[in-house]
């Protein structure tokens, strides 16, 4: 469909690049955190690994499928909306629970860094959930349509 050609999506080949980057970052992250004994290397691996993982998943999530059409767009939009709603309700739940714990239990009050990290985690969580939902739904329809030929 013509409207889908206007979508700001990367070419399909970036999906493979994205998976490779994400897998390499995840392996690097896990290995360094498990094996490294210096705090500097641990921090460096945590930052580079996390950025690499998110960047890789970004490439996967925003690259065209082999056949990108209006149904794929429908799946993308509905997955993004579901992810946004789920994370939004989790965020509300998290806020309520955190405030309750801080108010009624002798726990440390979170500083600005923790709050910023919470926000970032929320944003990344929306994206990761979108990607998971989109890929699962696409695979589901792919499998179903293969049976119905």
């Amino acid at each position: 469909m013509d409207s889908n050609k206007k979508l700001l999506l990367l070419p399909n080949c970036f999906q493979l690049v994205g998976w490779i980057v994400a897998a390499a970052a995840a392996v690097c992250l896990v290995c360094t955190l498990l094996l490294s004994k210096t705090p500097f290397l641990e921090s460096l691996a945590a930052v580079l690994g996390t950025v690499g993982l998110v960047a890789g998943l970004f490439l996967v999530g925003f690259s065209r499928e082999k056949t990108e059409d209006e149904f794929t767009l429908h799946l993308r939009v509905s997955s993004a909306l579901t992810a946004l709603l789920v994370v939004f309700f989790l965020w509300i739940l998290n806020t309520i629970v955190t405030v309750f714990l801080v108010r009624f239990l002798p726990l440390e009050v979170f500083g600005p860094i923790e709050i910023a990290l919470d926000c970032l985690t929320g944003f990344v969580a929306v994206f990761v959930l979108y990607l998971v939902l989109f890929k699962i739904r696409l695979a589901h329809f792919n499998k179903k349509s293969a049976y119905e030929e």
Partner: peptide, 10 residues
């Protein structure tokens, strides 16, 4: 018609 097989199934 220029769409994917999944679209026709759906």
């Amino acid at each position: 018609v220029g769409v994917s097989r999944q679209t026709i199934y759906a």
